[in-house]
Amino acid sequence: MRTAVKGIALNTFRESARNKVFYLLVFFGVLFALSSKLVSFLTLGDAMKVLKDTGLAAIHFFSALIAVFTGVNLVYKEIEKKTVLNILSKPVSRDQFIFGKFLGLALTMLVALAVMAGIFFVFVALNGGGFDPAIALYFLMLLLELLIIVAISLLFSSFTTPILSFIFTLSLYLIGHVMWTYNEFKVVLKAPLWRGFARFLYYLLPNLAKFNIKNEVVLGTPPGAWTVLLSILYALAYILALLCLTILIFRRREFS
């Protein structure tokens, strides 16, 4: 049982690791992070802040792109090219397949982020900056965000076409970063029905802004331990729910 999940996970990782697009995205993430040096030439005063701001923004942007791209692409290809038949015709349950896929995608994101984060820290050090544990905390939060994105893309891939999964996942990612606007909506919305609906959506849709602590971290005001803990708890619970839903849907899926 366990080796099947492990096998699927490792094979998923290997697929990314041998995919040119994946390398290209990691490469561009690194390139843009390094080009923050150029931007820092344009500023006066605290060049290190600009360097960190731009570098973290580049890593955030490209890692999110990798997550959406990889998440949608890997599952879609497996179904579209019918390699999934070779797996599910063996004693492997649908649950194991989904779980293995998620672990493989998680490993992919971990490695991609580790590479970019490592280069970022070296780059900061080369420019005379010290190691900032708060930035390491940001990378942890970013990883949680990426895992949620990957789980979302897995959910959509389990029942819809890749182009739709891509659009849905990307939309949820963008929406997830402005969910806090609900705090304003709830003041304005008077009708109880609309209020309830907004409230339902607020708690149902992924709320990703809490993982985006890069601004606070660079300004030297990292979030407190309690909010970090709540964020981690949120990520784990949300991913668990997504995986269960994906498995429920994927169990009913037919491969004709």
């Binding site: 099947a4 492990k6 094979n11 697929e15 041998r18 390699t83 070779n86 063996k90 004693p91």
Partner: peptide, 22 residues
């Protein structure tokens, strides 16, 4: 008309297939 992961070698594919059987 089987299709297998074209980024794998034959040996890797069979190793993967074996892993699914424990």
């Amino acid at each position: 008309n089987p299709y297998f992961y074209d980024y794998l070698t034959a040996r890797e594919l069979l190793t993967f297939a074996a892993s699914l059987f424990d």
